[in-house]
Simulated assay, not measured.
Amino acid sequence: MKTYYVYILLCSDKTYYIGVTSNLTQRLEDHQHKKYLNSYTSTRLPVELAYYCTFSEVSIAITTEKQIKKWSQAKKKALINGEFEKLPNLAKKKFK
């Protein structure tokens, strides 16, 4: 069974990059060595792996990646810090 990873990188400008891969080690090397010159991380090096989680279904990994990309910086930081109880209250938009 193949494993898929959703990962968050902390970039040098303190922004987050979220990605999905089936080879986390290789993908991190790709980011660090500017394999993709026009990528978001290529101008924000060095990057640091801040968080990752694993999936056995690629479709669920991709859905999760897309969901996290929409989150606020505060919500991403709570996830990274394992502050799961804060996640529901850190929505991008607060509705009254």
Results as ranks from 00 to 15, higher is better:
Y7C: 02
T54Y: 01
A78E: 07
R44H: 15
S12G: 04
I62G: 00
N89C: 03
D13L: 06
K96T: 06
I18S: 00
L28Y: 09
R27A: 07
Q26A: 13
Q73T: 11
R27M: 11
L24F: 08
T63Q: 14
K69P: 01
G82S: 08
F95C: 09
Q32I: 07
K94T: 05
C11M: 10
W71R: 09
K34P: 00
Y52G: 00
T25A: 06
T21F: 02
Y7G: 04
S39Y: 00
K70A: 11
W71A: 08
T41D: 00
E57F: 01
Q67D: 03
K77Y: 02
K77M: 07
K96A: 06
K76A: 05
L87W: 04
L9C: 09
S42V: 08
L49A: 05
T25G: 00
N89S: 12
V47Q: 02
K66M: 11
A61P: 00
L90K: 07
K76D: 01
L10T: 15
K14I: 05
S39M: 03
K86A: 08
E65V: 09
K75D: 03
K77E: 15
E48G: 06
Q32N: 12
L37E: 11
N89I: 02
Y51P: 03
S72T: 13
E83R: 13
C53D: 10
D30F: 11
A50E: 03
